[in-house]
Nucleic acid binder design. Sequence first.
DNA 1: CTGTGCTTGTGAACGTGAACACGTGCGCCC
DNA 2: GGGCGCACGTGTTCACGTTCACAAGCACAG
Lengths: 224, 224
Amino acid sequence: MSERTRRIPEATVARLPVYLRSLLGLAEDDKAATISSERLAELAGVNAAKVRKDLSYLGSYGTRGVGYDVEYLLFQMSRELGLTHDWPVVIVGVGNLGQALANYGGFTDRGFPIAALVDADPAKVGEMVHGIAVRHIDDLPAIADGAGIAIGIIATPAGAAQEVADRLVAAGITSILNFAPALVTVPAETSLRKVDLAVELQILSFYQQQRAGPRAGVTVARTS
Amino acid sequence: MSERTRRIPEATVARLPVYLRSLLGLAEDDKAATISSERLAELAGVNAAKVRKDLSYLGSYGTRGVGYDVEYLLFQMSRELGLTHDWPVVIVGVGNLGQALANYGGFTDRGFPIAALVDADPAKVGEMVHGIAVRHIDDLPAIADGAGIAIGIIATPAGAAQEVADRLVAAGITSILNFAPALVTVPAETSLRKVDLAVELQILSFYQQQRAGPRAGVTVARTS
DNA sequence: CTGTGCTTGTGAACGTGAACACGTGCGCCC
DNA sequence: GGGCGCACGTGTTCACGTTCACAAGCACAG
């Protein structure tokens, strides 16, 4: 791996947070200063070769015959992931899901404090959720700019998702996490990830169905 | 594709719900009886060849020169995904996230009604959430059995996740969706999917960081 | 200072999924 | 009833990610 090779595969990027989580969870009980790829693999639920290859993209931070220095690895991974500072986020849509996410402490704890809540419904503006006053979505540019927000979360109904995405982009937000069950498109220079909770369940349903025995109790007139 | 080829790739399975969603969203406005792979691809945000290949795994349900019959396709996809009937689910953990998920209508709407809520904390047992009384996790086997629940959702803190998973499996639940930020392992015959909201944000953070210019404002003593 | 053992780093093989291109077959028009 | 055009179905090619296997190299012991 030459000195400036910085093209980290997407699959690897998706695993780095898992390694990070594993290492953080480790610190408590067993304070070993060093960890082997094998052990880290076990903690993260992947295979050891993958761990080594993934970490090698960050640089040669391990010591042969010994393993990786836990503290140093944590530091390097945090730096690479951009987690050396907090990233304030704005949640758009203060319905059930939006409020849920706002109250869920998991974001703030891990470096993503909820800096603002916005909604399109004037009736909701001014409401306090999780100690934050809901503001109107028209103020988005000012809010994002003022608080230095780079990440937006879409928690609206499907119908509003695309328009909200457009407004987020217009407000200068360059990373979007979409919870609405709808396709949204953004400019190439904006990052977009989506989480559709119902889709996850439907995938489980498929395998469940599969196990229950193909075409149990279903009679279909197949021509061929 | 021979008659009984039923090995649907995982990547395809993950896209079927998206196609389904696209077709359902379509029904309203443009009631065309038929749809081309090209148009469906556009709606689902993928490419047309992929749509055709994915759908071909279900069987030859299209008509050359015409497209796919929307109604028939909906029926076949629903059948394949096991969505011809509802799948009641149990949510374990009635903290912020658990309550949030219970109140979020998105599950029930799409065929996954919340049939039960359980928690390990006796103080929470009896509470009403979303019109459902919280029960104790010790009752899980009886609850699952009584309501015919096959899918469980873990919405507990990370520390409890593995034990909850074990209990779900012991109660006869064979599909698990894990929201806790922890690795859980289950027997091979149990399906497991995980959603870690913070990990999604961390991935976004990586690309955000990347764009902001590598090592902006970070001074690291690199030896090599 | 040399040998030994252990774990990393990585080239190469492998497998899976994506993209392509075109043959195939159906409907429609004349 | 024949020909034409269109969109599906699919064999093939290609790219990506995973896995394997082993050489490289560090620490430590003697």
